[in-house]
């Protein structure tokens, strides 16, 4: 039973990894088509991954430098392990992974975990642009976490549980039961704060390609970079799955999951294609202005 479940979980991780790469490629492709280009082939992320694995020289700046990508990957995989992927009606079903009562709080923690690992690793890398990117990243992440946490709490108060599985269960039986309709304030706060969590333009100041090189990853090469790409793709999918579970009624099959995560992910991509990059003070002000107010409203509505 446990062995079989572990097998299914690893299979799910493999699917998520590939789906993340494919979504990343599609993102690049949409950007290219908007610019009138043909764009990369859809299998480019896999090639990049294998090429990075095959790099011959490796450099080191110390132990934390190694652990940075590992922490980030751990953040992504941890997010995956404690997230119910597909709702089948059985709380111990194959695709619910290791979800348990109270995992919402753990998931909030894992969202920050990768960022903290990168902060340590990039800090040891010693490149000034890494430190700059990480400082911006943590500042922006704090501004994103606040409305997200308030909205999560509002949903938790609404359904009286901290279990993502139970929240998904409560939303079954038609789209009118989705949190999107039963708790519009929390949903709006999540949907807006999600743009920051996904880290695409206008909130991509953390990486800010061509402005501060590539931000935290400046010193990373080869296998580390391959790991970080994997972690990035897993994190993107898992963020989308989290918001799908919390707001859009979860998924009852892999096909539904793929469709919903695609749409959720591409909400942030399309916004990114339209709006240019924010400065860090602009983006923090924006998160404190709009999603935070919505989050507070959501708490007020469901507290009284």
């Amino acid at each position: 039973m446990t062995i079989a479940k572990l097998g299914y979980t690893l299979l799910g991780l493999f699917i998520v990894w590939n789906w993340g790469f494919l979504m990343g490629a599609t993102f690049r492709k949409i950007g290219a088509r908007l610019a009138g280009r043909y764009g990369i082939p859809f299998y480019q992320p896999w090639i990049n991954f294998f090429k990075n694995i095959g790099v011959r020289t490796t450099i080191t700046h110390g132990v934390m430098y190694y652990l940075g990508p590992v922490f980030r990957l751990t953040g992504g995989i941890g997010l995956f392990f404690f997230m119910p992927m597909v709702f089948t009606g059985d709380p111990n079903g194959h695709w619910t992974n290791f979800s348990f009562e109270g995992d919402l709080i753990l998931i909030l923690y894992f969202q920050l975990f990768g960022m903290l690992g990168m902060a340590l690793g990039a800090g040891e890398g010693g490149h000034p642009y890494s430190a700059m990117g990480i400082a911006r990243g943590l500042a922006q992440h704090a501004a994103v976490e606040l409305p997200l946490t308030l909205a999560f709490l509002s949903i938790a108060i609404q359904y009286d549980t901290f279990s993502v599985y139970k929240i998904v269960e409560a939303q079954q039986g038609g789209f009118q039961n989705w949190v999107l309709f039963t708790n519009p304030f929390a949903s709006a706060a999540i949907i807006l704060a999600m743009l920051g969590a996904m880290g695409h333009s206008p909130f991509n100041l953390v990486k800010a390609p061509n402005e501060i090189l590539i931000g935290p990853a400046t010193e990373y090469e080869g296998t580390y970079l391959g790991f970080m790409q994997s972690a990035g793709s897993i994190l993107h999918v898992m963020e989308a799955v989290l918001f799908m579970n919390l707001v859009f009624g979860g998924a009852t099959s892999w096909a539904e999951l793929i469709v919903k995560t695609f749409l959720i992910y591409f909400w942030s991509v399309f916004v990114g294609m339209v709006f240019p990059r924010f400065k860090i003070e602009q983006s923090i002000t924006w998160f404190f202005k709009v999603p935070l107010v919505l989050g507070v409203l959501a708490i007020i509505v469901f507290s009284f």
């Binding site: 290219a32 764009g39 990373y220 970079l225």
Partner: peptide, 21 residues
């Protein structure tokens, strides 16, 4: 740019020497 578009061939620009080959 759209006219030449090197991304088709898997060629892209990287901002740091650590990540470029």
């Amino acid at each position: 740019t759209p006219r030449f578009d090197m991304f088709r061939f898997g060629v892209q620009m990287r901002p740091t020497p650590r990540q470029s080959n």
